[in-house]
Amino acid sequence: MQDALKNKIIDVCNKKIADKGENVSVSFYAFFKNKNDNPELFMEAATWWIKTHKLDHFEKAVKIKNLISGIAT
């Protein structure tokens, strides 16, 4: 996964956690605008989320942040 995408995911998760607490959930859609301006990056995130990790549509932001950071959950 590209470093820019990893950093964006961590930033979004940190913001969501700061705003709504440790139990907040996110979808991979949270990392993109409501416009398909970078389909390759979107597919990279979707593949990581769905195929690689077989995650549910919504997952705890803390879990996603830990997966991206390489911390076991």
Rank of each mutant, 00 (worst) to 15 (best):
A30F: 10
A46C: 11
N14Q: 09
F31V: 04
L67T: 09
K60A: 04
N36H: 08
N23L: 08
K35I: 14
V12H: 10
I71E: 10
A45M: 15
A18Q: 13
D37N: 07
F28D: 02
Q2I: 09
A30L: 06
G70M: 09
K63N: 14
I10V: 11
K60L: 08
K65W: 04
Y29L: 09
W48R: 06
C13I: 10
D19W: 07
N34M: 09
L55V: 01
I50A: 07
I9T: 01
N66H: 06
F31A: 02
M1K: 04
C13S: 06
K54N: 10
I71W: 02
V24E: 11
W48K: 01
K35D: 12
G21P: 02
A72K: 15
A4S: 09
K65G: 00
E44L: 14
V62L: 03
K35M: 09
V62D: 02
I64G: 07
I71C: 00
H57C: 07
K33T: 08
F58N: 13
D37C: 04
H53Y: 08
D3Q: 15
S25Q: 13
M1P: 03
I64F: 02
N23M: 01
A46D: 14
N14P: 03
N38C: 03
K54G: 13
C13R: 01
F42W: 15
I68W: 07
N14A: 04
K63L: 12
P39N: 06
K65S: 02
Q2P: 10
E22D: 01
P39V: 09
Y29W: 05
W49M: 02
T73M: 14
H53L: 11
I10W: 01
V24K: 04
E59I: 14
F58Y: 08
K33H: 08
K51N: 15
K33I: 12
S25A: 14
L5I: 12
P39G: 06
H57A: 08
N7A: 10
F42Q: 14
D11V: 00
K51S: 13
N34Y: 09
I50G: 08
F58P: 12
P39R: 05
I64R: 03
I9P: 01
N36I: 05
V62P: 02
K20S: 13
A46R: 15
A4Q: 06
K60D: 10
G21F: 01
I10D: 05
W49E: 04
D11I: 09
G21S: 03
K16D: 01
T52G: 04
C13V: 05
S69H: 10
T47M: 13
F28M: 10
T73I: 14
V12R: 01
K15C: 10
F32L: 08
A45H: 12
L5H: 05
D11S: 15
D19T: 07
N66D: 11
F32K: 00
A46T: 11
